[in-house]
Design a binder for these strands. Structure first.
Lengths: 309, 309
DNA sequence: AATTACCATAATAAATACCTTATAGTTGTT
DNA sequence: AACAACTATAAGGTATTTATTATGGTAATT
């Protein structure tokens, strides 16, 4: 059977009004046009749908079935149109974001604000490590990823949108705490607790040290940021971490920032997508929102986006 | 939005296979034909439905919605086709019959047999009086009506399919019971309990009496057959009723048939439909079944379809 | 660098879908 | 018998749809 929506639309009107002429008027058509559509539909169904007894029209049993089908299908089409319309106007939709664990803190705040502006949008947030993020991008499993500078050999489009200052922190009792300016030479004498080799932060730090021709002595390396801060709190060594992950520790004064020459190291947070990816309307809006609002959001939460010099 | 079933069909294949070329093969089309259909569908939706990242295809959010819609609509279409197919092959459908109350007894038996032959068909039976039956026909509210000879001034098509013998019955103790042959002259001396004026039976009886130039003395008239039989059982007078309504009373010997000259009066049961009515497949079959099987059904139930002469 | 697997685009031909006007035929009513 | 209200049918034209082949471009693979 090979019906057309046109046939269904015309049939619906005729079945409802039980009058070809009035249906034709309603559809702004000539009456024979209606007759033809009905005839074709009956040919498709290979059975009469409408019968005329005297002057009055009646639906046959199959006609009733067809009427139900026509109404149901047309209603579904209206629903579809509405859904699509809402998706386009951001009244509906789903946003899939993945973020590096170190970015978790401020991204949650950013998303919180964004969700308030777009209350009908549902959001899923995946917090995971750098390797997984690249995997997710590769499988096209999310709209956007927020992470440190992505590797160049992947086919990705990335935009830096916020400074990510790395600062040196220590146990509050450390002798360097409170000094106006610690020299890099002095810093080099210290031992560090750091992220594992291959992490973005670790490479950035190593590059910084080698650029300044000083040695970088590691005491321990750990696979997550939380563990590093813990180690520093226990005075197992100095740590170099993103300022954005320090809010709690600074407030509770379990860690202090050390004022070191040439610090903070300025890295950036990037918003990343697959090359060629066509963003959904809501993802486009979120990307713009992030690029515009990120700094403001950080400041509003009393979080210096850069460390004091 | 003005989609076509073709677009949906092609889109369904592409969305399922995520591969234009394979979809084209499945649909026995060239690959560009598929590209075009998808393109047109995307134009209708005014938003991308499929995105290509590297070599792989993905559905967009709207694409997923469209996929759901396509599958649902196509499934409904299959359901519709199946329903229509079943209706055509009598594996499904509904039969609406209306019968005169006096025909009730044997029509129920007829329908019982018919229902066993067509177990998937549902049946509704309306048992009512002659006036209502004509009304029902006028409003095209049923497929077929079974009744006595319908009036000629209605636009109806009717076929007699079974003799309807009217016999004289009385209380078993009546003096005429058991006589070899009662003359019409003697009968004329009796008083009768009869149907109301305007009923089919009543007119038939009156015509019979006047044709034979004898008087017809009524004692009481009543609006239904059951009441008449009751009155005769109570010896309030003789009754002239359809033999087909007497099964119980004869078996229980609460009424006896009187053997009267020129009786039984032979009327007929008619199967009636509106002029020009196109019967549904199942109604056509029922009409044929009735015309062929009615006599046999009556006999099988040990019901003489004609009174003994 | 060449190859392979895909999808997009262009040009073009054939089919068909769709609508209109004009006209004829029915049915029920006055 | 004439009329009014409807639907069916026929003829004809236009626009749309649908497909084909040929060709070009892109991304991953060898």
């Amino acid at each position: 059977m090979n019906l057309t929506f046109r046939q269904l639309k015309v049939f619906e009107a005729v079945a409802r009004l039980l009058n070809f002429t009035r249906a034709a008027k309603e559809l702004h058509l000539s009456q024979p046009a209606v007759s033809m559509q009905i005839k074709q539909l009956e040919e498709q169904a290979d059975t009469p749908l409408i019968e005329k007894l005297g002057k009055k029209l009646y639906l046959t049993e199959v006609g009733h079935e067809m009427y139900n089908y026509a109404r149901s299908t047309m209603q579904q089409l209206l629903d579809l149109e509405e859904t699509i319309g809402q998706m386009k106007t951001l009244q509906q939709g789903h946003l899939k974001i993945a973020v590096a664990s170190t970015a978790n803190h401020f991204v949650i705040r950013l998303l919180g604000r964004f969700a308030k502006v777009h209350p009908k949008i549902s959001i899923s947030l995946d917090v995971t490590n750098r390797i997984s993020l690249l995997d997710i991008l590769d499988r096209n499993e999310c709209d956007l990823v927020i992470m440190g500078r992505p590797p160049v050999n992947y086919k990705l489009t990335s935009v830096p949108f916020l400074e990510n200052p790395l600062v040196v922190v220590s146990h509050p009792e450390h002798k360097m705490v409170g000094k106006t300016q610690v020299s890099l030479k002095d810093l080099a004498k210290q031992e560090f607790v750091t992220r594992e080799l291959g992490s973005g932060t670790r490479s950035a730090v190593e590059r910084f040290f080698s650029d300044h021709n000083i040695e970088f002595k590691t005491k321990m390396d750990m696979s997550n940021n939380r563990a590093i801060k813990h180690a520093a709190e226990e005075d197992l060594g100095l740590a170099i971490v993103s300022l954005h992950t320090l809010e709690l520790e600074l407030k509770a004064k379990t860690l202090e920032i050390i004022n070191v020459e040439d610090f903070p190291i300025y890295r950036h947070w990037y918003i990343v997508q697959r090359e060629g990816k066509r963003l959904s309307p809501i993802a486009t809006v979120f990307k713009e929102y992030t690029m515009q609002e990120a700094k403001k959001v950080m400041q509003d939460f009393n979080m210096p986006y850069a460390a004091p010099k």
